[in-house]
Amino acid sequence: MTMVEFDVSPRARDYTQSTLKGLIPDESELTAGCLIEPGKSYGFFTDTTVCIGCKACEVACKEWNNLPADEVGLTGHSYDNTGALSSNTWRHVAFVEKKQADRAAAETGYGVRENEQAAFQSGWLMMSDVCKHCHHAPCMEACPTGALFKTEFDTVVVQQDICNGCGYCVPACPFGVVDVSTTDGKAHKCTLCYDRLKGGLEPACAKSCPTDSIQFGELSDLHARAKVRVEELHARGVTTAYTYGAPGDPGSTGDMQYLNAFFLLTDRPEAYNLPAAPTRPSNRVKPALAAGLMAVAALALGAVAAFAGAPRHGQ
């Protein structure tokens, strides 16, 4: 018999009893292998190749954040009855069933599975989507009240006591994450469990993930882990594996720099409902203002000429 070696923190031996008296200090060290300290960058690395679509992350998120259910019903879109991220849903598991190319499907009817597939999850993709906590967060840059801010953990959070529900963050987001709730009239999105981070706890979704598809940690660690994972997958023949949202990747385009929550994907970004090349909206503020003001200035000069040229006396 071979012993399986687990990478367990030695501190785990300090907590062997089933009922604890209180919080474990720096619990994240035991569950995620990292200490949570202000001033450092934290994020998620979501490895979609090991996602099994159990939706534990969706449930854990709803439970911890006290979020109500969205529509209860069936969408007919594989096992995805959540649909999309919303003000009440901050983790969303996407299910992609690969079908035959549209041309063939038009002849044979839709919903026909690919009958020639490469190995390894090429026919059924699952991805737990979440707020990307962008380095240059467009929602935060757009927010006119300062309700959206960068925390000491380099994550992006809406302050619920400040948001006045102007809704400008919603079209600003290149990923369709932020949403204004019709219940309370405030913008809501994933907080990367800001309250848990403050208490030294790993975010609820990452802690509940049974396959470690969602990994929480310091961003530089996660980038290194993702790189190793991509190389490992390539070596095993999954040449389509790539990261989305790490520096230089798709998703980090157009001055977005990088996303604190990034992904490992095996199909085009669009298949997972992600944009291939998002851009940083605030870069368009100055060009628009300058061009508009120049046009107005030119027309104002024209107006001066028109008034000056008009006869001063008589008809």
Partner: peptide, 13 residues
């Protein structure tokens, strides 16, 4: 490909 005909964006409210 699209994700069940959904857009990745949300329209302004």
């Amino acid at each position: 490909p699209t994700y069940y005909g959904r857009s990745q964006l949300k329209a302004a409210p």
